[in-house]
């Protein structure tokens, strides 16, 4: 960070990867805390902020929703809803009413969280620094807690829903008699457990990995101008390199953040469909 006396790349990167944490046991703001009872305030804050954005976006239309001629904003929001709805209808053919709203929430909330990655890497942390906050990570989906929290919730809902859809017997049969028949029950059970556990882990880590990697690239590119000296040729070449590369990466990253949000949404729908499908 530029305010430090002699910033070097290692410190800069580490600084950007440090959460603003609250130790729930002592109630103090801490740094690099270990243990479970620690809250990443920045992740939670931006996660809630973007949830509020989501609620505002769809709530503004939901409150005044009517079947008359829609305005531009209503039209746009309805287009988003229609898009999600068609995705859900493609993959999920059962009756549960929560799947489509859940997909809408995931698609847009995750997209908003991913979008934080496109903001200039130092912008919000600098503002935070001005307000007395030392560390600030602004991309909630690059926090494994957030990504895994969502994927675990999706998994738990899918698992619970599979009991509702298929009954205890159906789920039990799936665990015990597939894929090798009843004489290989232990193997079947083990395989099914691995298969089920792989779902939340892969779902969460895919999102986290992509966002974390994107963030790291931006931080690394920002190192080109870490000790910028306007009169130095090397510094200016670095500036040029950073502008070109960061622009390219941002453009590419637009694709990634949309794609990851879309994948998370579609996979959620697919898991719900799998939970409801009889074999």
């Amino acid at each position: 960070m530029a305010t430090e006396a002699a910033p070097d790349a290692g410190h800069y990167i580490l600084h950007h990867l440090t959460y603003l944490q609250l130790d729930l046991q002592s109630g103090k703001i801490v740094e690099n805390a270990q243990g479970f009872w620690v809250l990443n305030l920045d992740s939670v804050f931006f996660s809630l902020l973007l949830a509020a954005l989501f609620i505002w976006m769809f709530g503004s239309v939901a409150r005044r929703a009517n079947a008359g001629v829609p305005g531009k904003w209503q039209n746009f929001v309805e287009m988003c809803v229609g898009f999600v709805d068609s995705q859900v209808k493609d993959a999920y053919h059962h009756g549960a009413k929560f799947v489509a709203p859940m997909a809408l929430l995931i698609g847009f909330w995750v997209f908003f969280m991913n979008f934080m990655d496109l903001l200039p890497i130092d912008l919000l942390p600098k503002i935070g620094g001005g307000l007395g906050v030392d560390h600030l990570r602004v991309v909630p989906s690059a926090d494994p807690n957030v990504a895994l929290g969502m994927s675990i919730t999706v998994f738990a809902i899918a698992f619970g829903y599979s009991f509702v859809a298929k009954g205890f017997k159906g789920v039990g049969a799936e665990f015990l008699f597939h894929p090798f028949g009843k004489w290989m029950m232990p193997v079947n059970f083990l395989l099914k457990c691995v298969e089920e556990l792989a779902k939340p882990v892969s779902l969460g880590l895919r999102l986290f990995g992509n966002m974390y990697a994107g963030e790291i690239i931006f931080i690394l590119l920002a190192c080109f101008t870490l000790n910028y000296v306007p009169t130095s040729l090397g510094s200016n070449l670095g500036l040029l390199a950073q502008i070109l590369l960061a622009t390219g990466w941002t453009i590419f990253h637009v694709l990634i953040i949309s794609l990851q949000a879309y994948i998370f949404m579609v996979l959620t729908v697919v898991y719900m469909a799998m939970a409801a499908d009889h074999h």
Partner: peptide
């Protein structure tokens, strides 16, 4: 590192699913 943020996110996510299902999706749809 995995910490309590995970739980916070699960709670927020759960509430939001309920909220979206209850108040946002039905009127628009």
């Amino acid at each position: 590192s995995i910490n309590a943020t995970l739980i916070a996110q699960i709670i927020v996510f759960g509430i939001l699913i309920w909220f979206t299902m209850k108040f946002l999706w039905p009127p628009i749809s």
